[in-house]
Design a protein around this nucleic acid. Sequence first.
DNA 1: GCAAGGTC
Length: 619
Amino acid sequence: MRVLCVAEKNSIAKSVASILGGGQVKRRDTKSKYIKNYDFTFDFGGYIGTAQVTMTSVSGHLTEASFPSEYNSWSSVPQDILFDARIVTSVSKNANVLADNIKKEARNATYLYIWTDCDREGEHIGMEITNVAKISNPRIHVIRADFNNLEKRHIIQASKRPRELSKDAADAVSARIELDFRLGAIFTRLQTLQLQRAFEVLQNKVISYGPCQFPTLGFVVDRWQRVEDFVPENFWSLKLVDKRERQTVNFSWKRNRVYDRLAAILFLENCLDAKIAKVVKVNKKPAKRYKPIPLSTVELTKMGPKYLRLSSKKTLELAESLYTNGFVSYPRTETDQFDAGMDLQGIIGKLAPSEDWGTYAQGLLDGNYRTPRKGKHNDRAHPPIHPINLVHRSALSSQDHWKVYELITRRFLACCSENAIGAETIVDLQMGDEFFSQKGLVILERNYLDVYPYDKWTGTGQLPVYQVNEEFIPNVLNITDSVTTSPSYLTEPELISLMDANGIGTDATMADHIEKVQEREYVIKRKKRGAATEFVPSSLGIALAKGYDEIGLEWSLTKPFLRKEMEDQLKNIEKGQLDRDALVQMTLTQFRDVFHLTKQRFDCLKNSCRLYLIELNEG
DNA sequence: GCAAGGTC
């Protein structure tokens, strides 16, 4: 009996082989330097029993979609033909050696045991592997492992309880692949050809459309528009100052601000008439600053730009490099909760010899350890990102590698710590009919803050003593006038939050889309004052967004709704509630209308480009 | 020369 096991990536193949094979695993090289074949014997029990096992892997998707070559010419093929042109699915160039490996290893196997990640893409990759294996062995039996972590007991259990691949999940992915491919090609060709023809400055540019890149651009343009539309407004506020015990206490007005000067004067007069302020409430309560939740990919890609001066893309790349070198766990995960079974203190133990956070880690082991908080996500495939091994900064290839490793490690230690604890005093005053209040915060125990410099919690200090019902005459009582400040342009973490909330891209691809809109010169990253960066749309980016708005589609292509709707429907396919072909046809019908209207009203895009690329640029 | 999603 021979069983061929295939995982989504080498790291899983290696781990699973070492669990199932015990110490008796033989490693064979393949023609790919990333992929190995692992041979061992294992008793699967049940109908398979003891078998000779080869465990190998692919490296993500094996195949890619393309049109037959007669559709290659942009200029001679009308774009709308691509709505129903045949799509050829073939093994992608760099996956050929992997496909050959599977064909060869499948030849003498009775079972093909799929060990891809248990998510939607993993089911599809499983189908791709199946199709390739059946070329050399049409009779091979296909089963699939149901696993969501690499704990020994769990993996052994999964090996004895296979299930079938989910056709529904794979169908959802295949719908996504077809739609993204067709629509990307159709609208990219349309926009590029028409705009290149009309504008000299665009002649060498590809004006791509993508269902993720366009909404990404849209978010940047929306914020830019809000900044453009901003009109400063005057507002007025009451200021009440009390001086006692050599402290100056600024009370803030409960109404915060009013936009009418006369109103402010009336409120002030009401206070002045009362002459004295009365303490109506003194509330002392414990205050807490919660430690962070375990680190997911989305959160990591936000922290890079925010705290490390690295782009989201670069942050993820560095984390991947740390992962392949065995320093941190798998960096592409939605999970922000640790499974109860994980030995977190064991990891802390490995971190304890460090000269950077060793003392802190030892403190956790000596009694300060607290169970991490749980976030709301669990992809049932990977744990939150955490350190695997201690590494010295001199052993890493760059300072940036160290910055990311340090962030992941400090985040992990913070997760295993106690919340920061403080004491808060809130004093409420009444003067006439108006109310004022001030808060004093004293930090009592910093706890996780000691190892986690990315969080700041600054105490405002102790307030002087106030007694309830005490009355006093304020030292200062007057009106302040100010002007509202403009919103700021979108930052990278804000953009990622918007993409995340609207289902644009996946955790691992958001950074790519952000990179892509810059590469296409739709969006420009620029430095704010200080270290931070912000995104502004280019003239071309604005022109595209405005132009599509003008066309008057029900949902503009630069808005996130279309993608969000598609995501929801993919979930329905996954649940078996919607047919794959039905969704594809429905969506293509919808986009045929979008295409014809866009083509018919293409002048909107041209006019918009003329305005933003030429006229406004000349001024 | 087109997309987005895996992965190294």
